[in-house]
Design a protein around this nucleic acid. Structure first.
Ligand code: FES
Ligand code: FES
Lengths: 145, 145
DNA sequence: GAAATAAAAGAGTTTTTTATCTTTTATTAA
DNA sequence: TTAATAAAAGATAAAAAACTCTTTTATTTC
């Protein structure tokens, strides 16, 4: 079990792939994305439909259609993708599953865990989708295998 | 979605509860544990059966029976409970679900994520099950709600 | 050795997650 | 205005996780 759901892993990878592939304009189709991030095509389609409804990715039907990101979407932090798919449980929830993480009724791991939780949140909040394009273009970061 | 599976959350809470309740000898029954950590009784039974087979908790049948921890079990780090239930994916897996986390083929989050992953591992490796007994006895740490 | 106790084991069910397949709608371009 | 393209939507299906219920086995105590 990772920190993100499979759905969220695919979602993040897809968003980064779209940003990279459409950096110089144009769109990229679901088939190419699925292949590019090594994910099940139709499952990914569902994920992107959802992200599209929420405005986190843009899409166009028909010939020359496909997915892309507008300027605003490119500047969004990855934390928004995570929240859209997995919710904010990773950022606010208790490590041991107490209904409510709090200082008043803390679990044994609370003090240390909340620091780590915040680091994860910071990492994702400071990671703008578009900022990975360079490294992806250089081939020094991977989205598959 | 949290960092641990529900099964693992229950497992950790149960182990800490057993340690606390049997600190001065004796055993504690499944009913009391389930109530004490607010978990489904029969589901928890399965989890403890598994941990018992793996030697992470001890048990005795019959009157005055129940679960307890021997000296060795009390000194085990929580990381062993986590590994027994969820495996080592949390400690070694890729944040974005690449088959293999590596320096050669790193995902965009690799550099930052591996630091956080290590912090989680350190936290759990340095958390001996028995060390929480004091705070639990004082009531300043909770295992339910 | 019979009755009571409590965990272990077995055999499910339900819910959620992950994945697949088909049909519909929108858009483009010839 | 027809054909081609590509995403959206709908409808299932498979697998895994979470949870429940019943029966069996081991142990104790009387
Ligand atoms: S109460 Fe468990 S992490 Fe805060
Ligand atoms: S490759 Fe993704 S975390 Fe290491």
């Amino acid at each position: 079990m990772g920190v993100f759901s499979k759905t969220c892993e695919y979602g993040i990878r897809a968003v980064l792939f779209i940003a990279h592939k459409t950096a110089s304009g144009g769109r990229v189709g679901i088939k190419e994305i699925a292949t590019g991030i090594d994910s099940p095509e139709h499952f990914l389609a569902k994920i992107l439909q959802d992200l599209s409804r929420k405005g986190l990715v843009q899409s166009a039907k028909g010939p020359n259609g496909g997915f892309y990101l507008d300027g605003k979407a490119l500047r969004r932090p990855l934390s928004e993708v995570v929240e859209a798919i997995d919710g904010d449980g990773l950022f606010t929830g208790c490590a041991l599953g107490l209904k409510q993480c709090s200082e008043i009724n803390p679990c044994p791991l609370h003090n240390q865990f909340k620091l780590i939780r915040t680091e994860i949140q910071d990492l994702l909040q400071n990671a703008e989708i578009g900022t990975f394009n360079n490294e992806l273009a250089l081939g020094i970061r991977s989205l598959k295998r």
